[in-house]
């Protein structure tokens, strides 16, 4: 037991939690923007899978992580266009359309993988700061600093991007005309429309941002894990959607949820690896992250109402 409470173990657990949270956070921030505009996208997991495969395959072909991430973004963008067309312009029911996107992503990513790759082969994982080509040397001393090093510097660039996107998303939503339009069309599209705000255009852009981030989240996942296989995400996209709800559509709370989920997972794995949790309890322990995160966020955020027009298609008459 005492072993768990040594500083280095605590720090390692936290560092694991931060890394683990990154794909959840990226996907959930994108979904936050989409939902704030009134559009629920249950297809996040499918977009992530396609982004994950796209990123992975690009790294196999080119060796470039940057290109891998960009391909993930591009795939997210492309699917976002389809999803926006169906839900915003054809007024399709959002729940079932999202499930359709998910099933497409699940099946098509696997098909592409079978056809183009076949046997899963590891790729070079996303490098942490100290292993960045060229500039890694600068960061090496930082990583070696006690506590602060592993917590703040032993990460890859996507981790920093994900966490920087939290204030950026808040800024976008709260301090820009676009964000104001997003919040308005998610709450009362009739009012926004009466003032000449294009509901369709605003939702289209919000969906595209959301799906692009989902694609990036998927690519980040496969590049972090350095592998792709069938259903690599294992439901991360769905948990990300749940985090948006339980995080009450606020980027900071969504981040708190992603971190909490990561922390409980990391703690559970570590406790098991140190025999603090007995073997027989492993099934129950496996459920702990979801349960604890949901409970915590429900207690924190249950009083906050979601966007009033969420899942409601808009048309003038």
């Amino acid at each position: 037991m005492s072993q768990f409470f040594t500083v280095s173990v605590l720090v390692a657990t936290l560092a694991t939690a931060i890394k683990f949270a990154v794909p959840y956070l990226l996907a959930a921030l994108g979904e936050t923007i989409g939902q704030r505009s009134g559009v629920l996208n249950l297809g996040v997991d499918g977009i992530m899978l396609l982004g994950a495969f796209g990123g992975y395959y690009t790294v196999i072909q080119t060796g470039s992580h940057l290109q891998g991430i960009l391909v993930g973004l591009g795939i997210g963008l492309a699917i976002g266009i389809v999803y926006a067309y169906v839900t915003v312009f054809l007024h399709a029911q959002q729940g079932i359309s999202g499930i359709g996107i998910f099933l497409f992503g699940l099946g098509f990513s696997d098909l592409l993988f079978q056809e183009l790759v076949g046997t899963p082969k590891p790729i070079r994982p996303l490098p942490t700061l100290d292993k960045l080509p060229g500039v890694g040397g600068i960061f090496e001393p930082l990583v070696d600093i006690d506590i602060v090093g592993p917590l703040l510097f032993d990460h890859n660039l996507m981790t920093y991007m994900a966490f920087l996107l939290v204030p950026a998303t808040t800024w976008l939503l709260m301090k820009t005309t676009f964000g104001m339009n997003v919040r308005a069309v998610g709450e009362n599209p009739q009012a926004a429309d009466s003032l000449g705000v294009s509901v369709a255009k605003t939702r289209l852009i919000a969906i595209l941002i959301g799906s692009s981030l989902a694609g990036i989240a998927g690519a980040t996942l496969s590049l972090q894990l350095a592998i792709f296989q069938h259903n690599l995400t294992n439901g991360i996209g769905f948990i990300a959607v749940a985090l948006v709800y339980f995080g009450a559509w606020r980027p900071r709370w969504v981040m708190a949820g992603a971190l909490l989920y990561g922390l409980v997972t990391a703690t559970r794995i570590r406790w098991q690896s140190l025999d603090i949790i007995p073997q027989g309890a492993s099934d129950i322990a496996a459920m702990a992250p979801a349960i604890i995160t949901i409970l915590a966020l429900v207690l924190l955020a249950s009083r906050v109402r979601g966007p009033a027009a969420l899942t409601r298609p808009f048309s003038r008459h």
Partner: peptide, 14 residues
């Protein structure tokens, strides 16, 4: 450690 999943690569990695 049993991760609780046959297919969750992220958990196995962690």
């Amino acid at each position: 450690v049993y991760t609780g999943s046959f297919s969750d690569v992220a958990l196995a990695t962690t």
